[in-house]
């Protein structure tokens, strides 16, 4: 207990000292970093929506009774998991215009990150749906529920409980991965910190602040996913 208090005290003192020592410099580069943080948050939020939508669509489609739907979903998952996110971003930004579809940097970034992580999410969703006991499907069929309602009312709510924890980790990975969107000329935190570093040469302070911001984002997601997990379990317990 005492070592813990001492360790925390040392840490707080260290942080306070560092903040104090760099306070004057902080004023110079912090606004640019925070503007970058807004871009990061925007990309991450939009990518999260796209990721969730494509993960559920592809995850359900991989279990479809029609082989053509299954095949398309499998191809999507394999292609997006098999190549690098950076390659995909480049492809969306520089190659799609050749096909006559010019994307803004933000659109290219969101499409790249969202589809890439949606492919990983699809595997999570597929795994969770197959983990729902067979009897639940049969019971729903016996009660004469139509296929769509069987999925939305019986299977998916139960799968959701299994989906949320790995989805939280995936979301954290996704937020970290948004750091590569500078490849398509977006000025996110990472790129802003590189720019500020080239202007001011305060490597340690700038990057410590950047790492700290990302760390806060991941902790925030971990916390909110924990709340969501609690909620989804409560829902399940109430209906049982």
């Amino acid at each position: 207990m005492n070592t813990r208090v001492a360790a925390i005290a040392v840490l707080v003192a260290f942080l306070a000292g560092m903040v104090f020592a760099t306070f004057s410099e902080l004023r110079v580069f912090l606004p640019a970093l925070l503007r970058g943080a807004l871009i990061t948050i925007e990309v991450a939020a939009l990518s999260f929506l796209l990721m969730t939508a494509s993960a559920f669509t592809a995850g359900v489609a991989r279990l479809s009774p029609w082989w053509s739907v299954r095949w398309i979903a499998t191809a999507y998952v394999e292609v997006f998991r098999g190549t690098s996110l950076l390659v995909q971003l480049f492809w969306f930004f520089f190659v799609l215009p050749e096909f006559g579809l010019t994307l803004s940097p933000m659109a290219a970034g969101v499409l790249g990150v969202g589809f890439n992580f949606g492919a990983y999410g699809a595997e999570i969703v597929r795994g969770a749906i197959t983990a729902v006991p067979r009897g639940q499907w049969e019971a729903a069929a016996a009660l004469n529920l139509p296929v769509f309602r069987r999925m939305t009312r019986i299977v998916l709510p139960q799968a959701l409980v299994v989906v949320i924890p790995p989805f939280g980790n995936l979301t954290i990975e996704m937020v970290k991965a948004t750091s590569v969107v500078s490849a398509v000329t977006l000025v996110d935190i990472t790129y802003a910190s590189v720019q500020q570093n080239q202007l001011h040469y305060r490597t340690v302070e700038i990057f410590v602040v950047t790492l700290f911001l990302y760390y806060c984002f991941s902790q925030l997601i971990r916390f909110s996913m924990g709340l969501l997990e609690e909620r989804s379990k409560r829902h399940l317990a109430a209906t049982r």
Binding site: K176, S179, T190, N197, V204
Partner: peptide
């Protein structure tokens, strides 16, 4: 405890930022 925190910190931040950090530091 510090080793655990270090692992958490490395895992919780993007690789690209760490690469830039090393590259400039």
């Amino acid at each position: 405890v510090p080793a655990g925190e270090l692992i958490e910190l490395i895992r919780g931040t993007p690789l690209l930022v760490q690469l830039f950090f090393l590259f400039f530091l």
